[in-house]
Structures are given as structure tokens and as C-alpha cells.
Design a protein around this nucleic acid. Structure first.
Length: 261
DNA sequence: ATGGCGGTGGAGCACCGA
């Protein structure tokens, strides 16, 4: 089973890229972030025509997450538990049944949190606390679990081409990184790092100042695997080439292969 | 150089992203 995560920065703007990706790569599950549209405006029929079941949690103009799956998504959870007043569309979860068992997948769009020292950063940290709590509650299910998405966290200095440029940014704050590490320490594995510990691996490049051409990127899109998923991990790769396509998202897909049919 | 770019909403330019 092949699972990918991709912040598309507007699904309507990226429909052709999405079609190009899934036609060139056999993806069983594709988690999307930053749809930037309400559910009614999501290009559902176009994506169903590509062979996917579509589950969305949209929002006007901002945020929005989806899970596309060749098999039906069951036991769907919309929104991250822990704050009934939170109306931002940033979390979607469901279960996919395969011939060799189930896999639970979540599509996550973790708050950016900039600028630091404002309620936006407080919201980011509180959201991470809720994610940690919810992930901890899922672990006793003892399922292969894949928490994937745009975490808006640069885990380590080697995950940025120019780490000094990010020291005052919410993505590289010690508090953000500590909470990310707390999540890992529950028993999750960073799939990309389990397969490749080299520096220079990035998933986001700013549109400005020729960042991609200079490979001035950061690694902020992650797939975190429960123990049961890690046991089945075969490979993880970043689809960097999509960033050189015409009118690209500023993020690229990250995908894993799991030993699951 | 806190912008440089790109998307949304809505018809200017503000807001957001990272």
C-alpha cells in the first residue's frame, strides 16, 4: 500500500498536478491539506473519475483537509478532539480495510503559528497538545496508524537549508520542536527519517527569491507511523520533481510504501 | 530588506501562508 501526503495550496489550482501525480504513481491513499474551499466547491467528481473515494473537511478560503482513497474510508472522524469551539478545518481521520488488515490514516494541517508571541502561536501549541492527546488515545487500538500532513514544524537544524533564518519563526521554535518530539516519543516513527538520514531533504520551498532553484527549503511535511505501521514500512520518498512543474504548490508530496495489500 | 510570491475574497487591497 502506497500512502502520500501533500499540501496542495488550493485544490482548485492544483487539480491538473494531482491528476498528473496519481496517473504516474499508483497511490492507494492521498492525504491533502490547504484545500482552500468549502466541501460543496471541492472538485469531487473530477477526483472520483481518477478512481478515488473522496472524504473532505473544507473551509472557506483557508485550511481544509481531505483523504482520497481507492478503497472506501470508514470510521471517519472530522476535526481534532479537545476543543469544541475550534472551527478550523485541520484534521480528518479514517480507516481503510485491506486484504491484510486495516490501516488508520489522518490528514493533518497543523497551524502555522506565526508570528510568535501572539495568540496564533498559542493556538499552534494548544493544537499540538490536543494532537498529542488524541494520538495517545489511538495507540491502544494497536493498528497500523499513519498521521500525515503539513506539521509546520522543522524537527531539526538539518531539516532546513538555512536554519539560522528560522530561529525566530514559529516553525523552528524550541517549543514547537519539543511538542513534535513528544509526539514521536509516544512511539511514532518519522517515516522519511527512518529511510534516509541525509541532510538536504526538503518538502517546502518559498515562492520568493528563487528558493527552489537555490534549494533553500525546509522539511515540514511528515508521515508519523505507529509501531504496527513502522513494522510494515518499506520505503519513504519526497516527490521533489513536482515543485518544478508549472504553477506548483509550494509543498511537494511525501509518500511511503507499507507492506499491506 | 518581515519583502521578494501566490491564493482567496471580491472587486481595493487586506489577510494568510512559512
Amino acid at each position: 500500500m502506497r500512502i502520500a501526503t501533500w499540501n496542495v495550496n488550493s485544490i482548485k489550482q492544483r487539480l491538473e498536478h494531482l491528476a498528473q501525480l496519481v496517473k504516474s504513481t499508483d497511490l492507494d491513499v492521498l492525504c491533502l491539506q490547504e484545500l482552500k474551499c468549502v466541501d460543496e466547491a471541492f472538485p469531487r467528481s473530477e477526483i472520483e473519475a481518477l478512481g478515488y473515494h473522496v472524504t473532505t473537511l473544507g473551509q472557506k478560503a483557508y485550511n481544509g483537509v481531505a483523504i482520497l482513497s481507492k478503497r472506501p474510508l470508514e470510521d471517519v472522524r472530522r476535526g481534532l478532539p479537545g476543543d469544541e469551539a475550534d472551527e478550523q478545518a485541520r484534521y480528518l481521520e479514517g480507516v481503510i480495510s485491506t486484504g491484510s488488515g486495516v490501516v488508520r490514516v489522518a490528514s493533518i494541517y497543523l497551524p502555522n503559528g506565526n508570528p510568535i508571541g501572539t495568540p496564533k502561536f498559542d493556538y499552534k501549541l494548544a493544537w499540538m497538545d490536543r494532537l498529542i492527546r488524541h494520538a495517545n488515545n489511538l495507540l491502544p487500538l494497536e493498528e497500523p496508524l499513519v498521521l500525515c500532513g503539513d506539521y509546520n514544524v522543522i524537527p531539526e537544524a538539518k531539516d532546513a537549508a538555512d536554519p539560522a533564518a528560522w530561529v525566530n519563526d514559529a516553525l523552528f521554535q524550541l517549543e514547537s520542536r519539543a511538542k513534535f518530539r513528544t509526539l514521536l516519543n509516544l512511539g511514532f516513527t518519522d517515516a522519511l527519517r527512518a529511510c534516509n538520514d541525509q541532510p538536504g531533504l526538503y518538502t517546502f520551498w518559498d515562492y520568493q527569491a528563487g528558493a527552489f532553484q537555490r534549494n533553500n527549503g525546509i522539511r515540514i511535511d511528515h508521515l508519523l507511523l505507529s509501531g504496527q505501521a513502522t513494522d510494515r514500512l518499506r520505503n519513504a520518498v519526497i516527490r521533489k520533481e513536482t515543485r518544478s512543474w508549472e504553477k506548483p504548490s509550494d509543498h511537494v508530496p511525501v509518500m511511503i510504501d507499507l507492506d499491506l495489500d
